[in-house]
Design a protein around this nucleic acid. Structure first.
Lengths: 186, 186
DNA sequence: GTCTATACCACGATAGAC
DNA sequence: GTCTATCGTGGTATAGAC
């Protein structure tokens, strides 16, 4: 063969990474196969050597994104409240609002995941429940863990819709402030 | 003229209503002009007698949806905490999760609004800030009002991604429970 | 105002050369 | 594995008859 064994894996990884970033910023439905491939310097036709369809790529992107987020937000069996606090601080930051390409996939692609087929949503559910379980163990509260997760995702969705950075920052700081109080009061 | 004066207004209203429902369920980008018109029994060509472009329709949909949500969630100058509580109960209900077509536009179209042009987002910001102001007046807390808004939107985004109705219900009830506690403690 | 027909472009996906 | 070329479809938008 004219291409090394690892070449395909590397190309596939580049494609996944680049496509995920494009999907999070422009929406997966709004970017075509040609655009996805051009972004990594390849032609559209080469796409089908890596994925049988655009939908299959979507599933792989979600899988990769969620496992990555889980690692960053709640990996391990026992995390300290200090680490959870650092996670919340970053999640609810202006940097996260402004850089959707490298951020969590839930606020940017949540609606698209909700509209996708059952297989993808089952994967998403597994991951979300795993993150919830980790946070619930740290916080010793199932309901507080769900509430935090919802509020984090919602704050980013709301903030990204706004134009004024000051109001955006207000949404973030308010959410963080109220979350901190809830965690402390618990 | 062969058509009455009010006919155009009525058709436009039907188009707005139907298109909003389709946009919330399938995503605005994923449904074509032909599909939007066929949904109200007209041909695709007739669309441009009502809107100059699909983007202009998007702006009108958002405007209409948000003012409608404001009416349902926080109209008037002074609302009781009881009414706010009823609003939260409905917003965080399984019916709302299941029927995106008639529900709030923020969880289903939030990401698309965030990606749209500045004019649309300025409009969205105006309405969101107005709703926030009403809730903040009722609750006597700016930050709590922002936190509630974020949590409501986030809970719906998260719940809609899941497949298991029991887990969906858990997300909703947890969010409602924690919100109630926050409001009571305030 | 609505229809049919159409221009024009972008999309997802495939075929065959290299 | 990647390229170019292409097929078929569906997208937005326009033109002209009624």
């Amino acid at each position: 063969m004219r291409y090394s064994i690892s070449h395909k894996q590397q190309t596939r990884e580049r494609l996944l990474q680049s496509s995920a970033a494009l999907a999070k910023t422009q929406g997966f439905a709004s970017v075509g196969v040609d655009g996805l491939m051009k972004a990594i310097g390849l032609s559209g036709g080469a796409f089908y050597s890596h994925f049988s369809s655009k939908d299959e790529l979507f599933g792989s992107i979600i899988e990769r994104e969620l496992s990555q987020s889980l690692e960053r937000l709640g990996a391990g069996d026992a995390q300290s409240r200090e680490r959870l606090d650092r996670c919340l601080k970053f999640y609810l930051s202006m940097a996260h609002v402004e850089h959707a390409a490298t951020g969590c996939a839930l606020p940017s692609m949540g609606a698209e995941i909700a509209r996708s087929d059952v297989v993808v949503r089952e994967h998403a559910q597994t991951w979300i429940c795993q993150l919830h379980a980790n946070w619930a163990r740290t916080l010793e509260s199932d309901s507080l863990a769900w509430a935090i997760l919802s509020q984090c995702v919602g704050a980013l969705v709301v903030a990204r819709m706004l134009v004024d950075p000051q109001v955006q920052a207000q949404v973030l700081s308010s959410s963080y402030q109220e979350l901190s109080r809830q965690i402390a009061d618990h």
